[in-house]
Design a protein around this nucleic acid. Structure first.
Lengths: 230, 230
DNA sequence: GGATGTGAAGTAGTTCACAGCC
DNA sequence: GGCTGTGAACTACTTCACATCC
């Protein structure tokens, strides 16, 4: 009983780190490793080993005392918790460079997300193929989906947001540098590259230690030449 | 004296919000508004008015009691604090869709950052122009710069990171979904779209309120049709 | 022995509530 | 009257330290 009395929603910082742990676990599993401990994970993810253990403890007990965590189990469990076993349809509006980069990315479409449609307004682009998908006109109405992704120029972002809301998406991932106004109840998440750049520049100017932040940053521990990814 | 005894480094969460306030201030200034108050800012940025005031108070007193903040002053002051008055050279490696999207973006290159060079390994791409810049071969050595941006496929990311380290960048912004190993002292910041998508999906599954997080999200307060950006 | 998982302590960030100023 | 700026209270997150189990 008390077992199940974990807080029902994960702390936001934990939520940001879980996908990182998952990626590391995936890399280790692929490399054939059978165990990874909280210190390894922490070094690679830029978190302390204690933080790693605390984060993972929210998912239930899944390590083995004395040895560590099994990368496969870890990967699997994080998938479950993040809801990747369900599937969500995603519509993407704006097939410029960024839109194409996202559709073609090996990693953007995590397990659980499925592209239901990709859209643009440019007649030159409509009808062309990006990956497996044909670009549709945004005027023809949007496919029903849970998540909408906006990658249009900032001037058009609000208009697209309104179309997405009208077609009843529940969440919007906005890559345009533009603040959106949407009805209460629609989740909007901003992804903003320039913010990241600004934060880096602030840390450079101030020599501030880069530890502790929203998106993770790793301080590697071995010289660069010593390790090489395969 | 006590005036100057503010904590010397801004809290990370504040650091993430400042660029958002700045963007909003910019939009209001352009629209000719002469005042914006902490409630307006908070609604648009997805933060409480108290948080806005606390954040801005770190920059020194810059509001007017009774009315609010002047958008221009606000914009200016945030620029200063984020170090945008200094200028940093940036090299970018990988001119696929993502790299091109970043170079062409109106907003990625915030005031203070300057592209010192853009690179690729693909002979097809080397020599072509992206925006105002000609793509150089990555084998010819990199221009000296403070910040390196990685937008290559994950398999190549570690190799590029090592090149960047060798050419003495102080900070790396990594868009590849790949954990990097670098010498201690090099700042690495990860930007990872799939993490954002996963977090959105988690919130959808769990109906968790989206408030409070690293990257901001706005819950608009007016119906979508009421406002339109120009 | 060695690493997990977790109460308890500590720290950082947010929110309350209101004095101070326009 | 209205809104800023900030001590004081609170809440959330992290870190310590250690009992627990393989």
């Amino acid at each position: 009983m008390a077992r199940l009395l974990r807080p029902k929603h994960l702390p936001e910082p934990t939520l940001h780190r879980l996908p990182i742990y998952q990626r590391i676990a995936g890399e280790w599993a692929k490399r054939g490793e059978r165990q990874i401990d909280s210190t390894n994970l922490g070094d690679l993810a830029g978190a302390s080993s204690t933080t790693v253990r605390r984060d993972l403890s929210y998912l239930g007990p899944l390590g083995t005392r004395g040895s560590g965590y099994d990368p496969n189990t870890l990967f699997q469990k994080i998938s479950e918790v993040l809801g990747s076993q369900l599937h969500y349809d995603v519509v993407m509006v704006g097939m410029g460079n960024l839109g194409r980069a996202l559709v073609n990315s090996t990693s953007f479409l995590v397990h659980g997300a499925r592209i239901a449609g990709i859209y643009d307004i440019d007649p030159e682009v409509i009808g062309t193929k990006v990956g497996d998908h044909e670009v549709q006109s945004v005027d023809g109405g949007l496919e029903q989906a849970a998540v909408g992704v906006i990658c249009v120029p900032p001037e058009q972002a609000q208009g697209v947001a309104e179309k997405l809301v009208a077609s009843k998406v529940s969440a919007i991932l906005n890559f345009a540098p533009q603040v959106l106004t949407v009805p209460l109840g629609t989740v909007v998440r901003y992804v903003d590259f320039s913010i990241e750049l600004q934060i880096v520049m602030y840390h450079l100017t101030n020599g501030t230690g880069p530890l502790g932040g929203g998106i993770l940053h790793t301080l590697g521990i071995t010289p660069p030449v010593a390790l090489r990814s395969t």
